[in-house]
Nucleic acid binder design. Sequence first.
DNA 1: CTATCTGAGTCCATTTTTCATACCCAAACT
DNA 2: AGTTTGGGTATGAAAAATGGACTCAGATAG
Lengths: 158, 158
Amino acid sequence: MTDHVPKIVSSRHAPVPLAECALARAIRSIGDGWTLLILREALCGVERFDAMHDDLGIPRSVLAERLSKLVAEGILEQRPYREPGRRQRNGYVLTEKGRALTPALVALREWSEAHLPGGPSRLRLQTPDGQEVVTRLIRVDGSVLADPSEIVAIAKPG
Amino acid sequence: MTDHVPKIVSSRHAPVPLAECALARAIRSIGDGWTLLILREALCGVERFDAMHDDLGIPRSVLAERLSKLVAEGILEQRPYREPGRRQRNGYVLTEKGRALTPALVALREWSEAHLPGGPSRLRLQTPDGQEVVTRLIRVDGSVLADPSEIVAIAKPG
DNA sequence: CTATCTGAGTCCATTTTTCATACCCAAACT
DNA sequence: AGTTTGGGTATGAAAAATGGACTCAGATAG
């Protein structure tokens, strides 16, 4: 104690362990390739099992398992519907919790457009009046952050 | 051709196929649980193989494979360093392309704080002067979007 | 009333990843 | 010369993904 512990040189390790990190929890919850692609489908308004199966080429068993996990987590909910002359079925739609993932997906899309090869995306995310939607990083005082390299990660004492 | 094809009833399917979707490409590139957790480490300033291994509990072979993929994609780069009296090694740091993922990760963190159980996160992402950073969805005209449910996905004609 | 069609899944055998542990290597220090 | 240490490979066992066949229930046709 009277020792002057030389002090940790730099942050060799993350400032916060996984168990206390909200970002890590989000990744655990939805950070899986198929799950993210399913959320893209949901954001695009696709509700049906077979439509997702067709769009994604995902194995049916994997799709069923992921959908029920997303329902269990409250990100999707089953919405029964019936087409005229067809029997009742249920589709999957985003809950409010699920919709709240939109900023993250929009940010990913922007990153891809700016930094990945493959040409411009044909997918547009916009308001009903046709204005495209983008994300911005801002400080709590409302000012826009120009450069993400200004960001540092620290641990809140706890 | 003279047939009046009845017209597709609604968007059962996504407006854009995966191959032409920037969001899908991003998911292919980094949408994997371990990869996202590695990016979290990088964002936290963790550079070294062993530090990441300790923090994440990831198998060494998986970590090695993911790191080299991220380097190949230009998201991380190897930065050789040498501590006094130690041999030269290389760490991994975000490139500019990698840093550009920050908004997506911040958005995920916000979602987690707002909607997942687990208590407040101890991880803070802030500017050097201590202001916390958050994301906002905005229209191209600059106005802030209050509710993500206003968003619709459509295909750009192509 | 029986047959058939369809959307929405489940089941199952095979292949692919992941996992955990052990092992390896090169530099630096003893 | 021998030991330590960060940074990886190699390897067999366990888990997950894959793709195809199978199931089920209700609507409609015959």
